[in-house]
C-alpha cells in the first residue's frame, strides 16, 4: 500500500456561523484518484481549497506530503509547489501568451533557466494536444483550449497532487469532452494523485479509485465507483444520484 500523501483529520471550517466543513476525515494515498461529488453548497470546493490554503481551516489537521499546513508562509509556499490546481474559470493570465503562462511558475518559483522551462512547457502543451497555440493569448482561445492550457500550466510545476475544482462546469457542452479526455489520459498515463470535484459521473466511473459524496459539510458516503453508483448506501446519496443521472 502506498503511503498517505494528503491527510485531513477532524477538519472544521466556519464562514461566520455557517459550519461549512464538519469534522472532515480523509486520507489520500499516493497515486490515488478521488472524485468528490455532491449538491452545491456541500463544501466540496471548500475542502479541496483548504488543501492548498486558498481557504483557511479553523480546526483540525491537514498534512500534505508530511508537511503540516499551518499559518506559516514558508510551509504554505512549500506545499503549493507540490500541489497543482485547475480552476473552474481557468484563471489564465490574460496579459501573457500561453507559453509565458506556462513558464512563469518554473522560471520564478523553481528557478529554472528559460530554455528548460520552455522545453517543459512545449512538452506539456503537446500532452494536452495544443502545441500550436503556444504564442497566442488566452483571449484568443476557446474555453476548452483555455482549460487545457490551465491543466498544462499546473503540470509544468511537476506537482505531486493535482486538484480540480469543477474543471468543466464553465465550459460549453461540446468542449467538455476534450478537457475530460485530457484528464483521463493524465490519469491513465501517469501516476498522478488527483482530487477532482466534478459532476461528470462518466469520468468518475472511468478513472476514479474512490468516489466521495459530500452533503452539507460532511462526508456522507465514500466507496468505489461501481458500488457507489450501483448500490448507494445512504438516502441522501440515492437522492443525489437520481437527480444527476439523465
Amino acid at each position: 500500500m502506498s503511503e498517505v500523501i494528503v491527510s485531513l483529520q477532524k477538519v472544521n471550517k466556519w464562514y461566520g456561523d455557517f459550519h461549512v466543513l464538519q469534522n472532515i476525515d480523509l486520507n489520500v494515498r499516493r497515486g490515488e484518484r478521488i472524485v468528490i461529488c455532491g449538491p452545491s453548497g456541500s463544501g466540496k470546493s471548500t475542502m479541496i481549497r483548504c488543501i492548498n490554503r486558498l481557504e483557511e481551516h479553523q480546526s483540525g489537521l491537514i498534512t500534505v506530503d508530511g508537511v503540516e499546513l499551518i499559518h506559516d508562509l514558508k510551509r504554505i509556499e512549500a506545499i503549493r509547489k507540490e500541489v497543482g490546481m485547475v480552476f473552474q474559470h481557468f484563471n489564465l493570465f490574460p496579459h501573457l501568451t500561453v507559453l509565458e503562462n506556462l513558464t512563469l511558475g518554473p522560471t520564478w518559483v523553481l528557478k529554472k533557466p528559460l530554455a528548460e522551462a520552455q522545453a517543459i512547457a512545449m512538452k506539456y502543451l503537446e500532452r494536452v494536444r495544443i502545441p500550436d497555440q503556444a504564442h497566442k493569448y488566452p483571449g484568443q482561445l476557446s474555453g476548452g483550449q483555455q482549460q487545457r492550457v490551465a491543466i498544462a500550466r499546473s503540470l509544468c510545476m511537476s506537482p505531486k497532487v493535482m486538484l480540480f475544482d469543477e474543471p468543466t462546469s464553465a465550459l460549453d457542452p461540446e468542449m467538455v469532452k476534450e478537457v475530460l479526455d485530457v484528464m483521463v489520459s493524465l490519469a491513465e498515463e501517469t501516476k498522478m494523485t488527483m482530487l477532482c470535484v466534478t459532476h461528470e459521473m462518466g469520468f468518475a466511473r472511468k478513472v476514479a479509485d474512490r468516489v466521495i459524496f459530500m452533503d452539507r459539510g460532511e462526508i456522507v458516503e465514500e466507496n468505489v465507483p461501481e458500488l457507489f453508483f450501483g448500490i448507494p448506501q445512504t438516502d441522501r446519496a440515492r437522492q443525489f444520484l437520481n437527480q444527476i443521472v439523465h
Binding site: Q58, I219, E222
Partner: peptide, 19 residues
C-alpha cells in the same frame, strides 16, 4: 476498499471563539 457511511451526525458545533 470499505464502504464508509456517516449516519449519526455529531451535535452541531458552534464556531470556536476566534474573537
Amino acid at each position: 476498499m470499505s464502504t464508509t457511511t456517516h449516519t449519526d451526525r455529531p451535535a452541531l458545533q458552534a464556531p470556536p471563539r476566534v474573537q
